[in-house]
């Protein structure tokens, strides 16, 4: 992928992570009763999936022939 395209995707991922964090904060402070714990867990898992997939490049683990490059 070209550098400019990587930058665009990186900014997009950062924005999504920021929005998910803001939603987490709103869910916790707003207090959604019994659903709060479940929502917070789902939001944390979504953020983790983004970090593992995009930032940590977990997919490279399944491409031994390319060396990840």
């Amino acid at each position: 992928m070209e550098k400019a395209a990587l930058l665009r995707v990186g900014v997009l991922v950062l924005v999504v992570l920021a929005v998910l964090t803001a939603v987490e904060y709103w869910v916790a402070v707003g207090g959604l009763g019994g659903a709060t714990l479940t929502l917070l867990a789902l939001l944390a898992l979504a953020k983790a999936a983004l970090i593992v997939d995009y930032f940590m490049h977990v997919g490279k683990l399944f491409q031994p022939e390319s060396g990840g490059h």
Binding site: E24, A28, A44, I51, H57
Partner: peptide, 25 residues
């Protein structure tokens, strides 16, 4: 460089779970 950076993302990843556990729940 790549390994150091992946490890840094891991540190961030762990905080993604520590933050709601200590501050939000």
């Amino acid at each position: 460089a790549e390994g150091s950076i992946i490890y840094w993302h891991f540190v961030d990843l762990v905080w993604v779970f520590i933050y709601p556990t200590l501050y939000l729940v």
